[in-house]
Amino acid sequence: MFDPFKDFDQAGYLRNLYGEKDPQIVRGLEHTLFRTGLDEALAHVAKRRTLGYSDFLAVHRILFSAFYPSAGQDRAATVPNIAVSKGNTVFAHPLDARRAVEEGLRIGQDKAALRQHPGEVMGWFAYGHPFLDGNGRTMLIIHSELCHRAGFCIEWQRTRKTEYLAALNAEIASPGQGLLDGYLLSFVGAACERQLWGGAIDGIRGLDGRSIEDAVDGEYTDVRVMQKYQAFEMSRAMSKADRR
């Protein structure tokens, strides 16, 4: 059980407002909230002239504040010394999450760069992993808006969850090698009107959050945890150096 606050028995999954512990109920409520808040979240990003880190926080808050009191707060605010991973993938240090997301936004707001590297942008967002839950759905909304502004879309409903996640994890481990670009570029389509996005996004297979759960590796003050984090970071740095 993913329990970074170590109070699951008292406060439920991630200190939710109802103290709910049943994972099936939690996932169902999360997805219902996502569907309910989707139009408002899309409207928020549409009216922003430039998308920034604050918009990541705002979208997450719109989607999940009815269930999580910490919605819209990143890991630097909620668990600043806790290392989080998923399977073999290690995410950014909480204090580096913003910087990772902002790198994705920097590339993503260059229309020509985004057309060539939609996967690299998503990889930076995913590596930043700013929230304890709801990252994938928040990223999808921001990424879809960036693509729209660049004049295209990713036809997510045609992707396969297992293949996408494999390419995403590979991108996080080896950034800038085109690993996720190669996958997503196969699903590029023409941009469509924003009012049509809600149905298309809601129809994406596997968007209900039922996947490998995040894990708490421990605190960064733990030598073992820090060594694991540093080894992953070194591997990423070598991958970026190879690209140059």
Rank of each mutant, 00 (worst) to 15 (best):
R106N: 13
A112F: 12
A112K: 13
G123V: 00
G123P: 00
Y127C: 02
D133V: 07
G134C: 05
G134I: 04
G136S: 11
M139Q: 14
L140M: 15
I142C: 14
S144R: 15
H148G: 14
G151F: 12
C153Q: 15
I154S: 10
E155D: 14
R158Y: 10
R160A: 11
K161D: 09
K161S: 09
T162F: 05
T162C: 01
L165Y: 10
I172P: 01
I172L: 01
A173C: 06
P175L: 02
P175G: 01
G176R: 00
G176S: 04
L179C: 03
L179F: 03
D181A: 03
G182P: 01
G182N: 05
Y183T: 02
L184S: 05
S186E: 15
V188C: 13
A191N: 14
A191T: 15
E193A: 15
L196A: 14
G199K: 12
A200K: 11
D202A: 14
G203L: 04
L207K: 08
L207Q: 11
D208V: 06
G209F: 03
S211V: 08
S211T: 07
S211Y: 02
E213Q: 15
A215L: 08
D217T: 01
D222S: 05
R224D: 05
R224A: 09
R224L: 04
V225K: 03
M226Q: 09
Y229H: 09
Q230F: 10
